[in-house]
């Protein structure tokens, strides 16, 4: 989309279509923000509250990455780099689980 050939191939009609898509994504993001805040006032139990809030955040994040950052139509090199990032990020996020199941840590954590 941003290469030399793509620049010239990008017609005014294409850009107009994309702009329309951006507006739809923008409205969706605002609606999802309101939904997240509203759900937080329902005083749900901790686990469902966390899962729902993170699910909505993931949907919002996917919309930003897919459309505003054009990830929906990117080159393979970017997907490969991001795949590695996702794997390493998953390892990083799983560290608290390992730490929490560690008997030595458990003795100190209530």
């Amino acid at each position: 989309m941003s290469t030399h050939s793509a620049h010239s191939a990008h017609s005014a009609h294409d850009v107009k279509n994309e702009v329309r898509r951006y507006v739809v994504v923008f409205v969706a993001l605002l609606c999802l923000t309101v939904i997240t805040v509203a759900i937080s006032y329902l005083n749900l139990p901790t686990l469902p509250a966390i899962l729902i809030a993170l699910f909505v955040a993931c949907v919002k994040g996917s919309l930003v990455a897919s459309y505003f950052m054009h990830l929906i139509s990117e080159k393979k090199a970017i997907y490969m780099a991001l795949l590695l990032t996702v794997v390493l990020f998953a390892v990083l996020m799983s560290l608290p689980l390992f730490a929490h199941s560690d008997p030595i840590v458990l003795r100190h954590v209530p």
Binding site: T33, T36, S40, I50, A53, A57, V64, F68
Partner: peptide, 22 residues
């Protein structure tokens, strides 16, 4: 520049529920 700016927005999308709502 836009890719960076959207990333900053994306980080806030996660910070907001984690810090303010949960």
């Amino acid at each position: 520049a836009g890719l960076y700016w959207h990333f900053v927005d994306l980080v806030w999308i996660f910070l907001f529920p984690v810090l303010y709502l949960l």
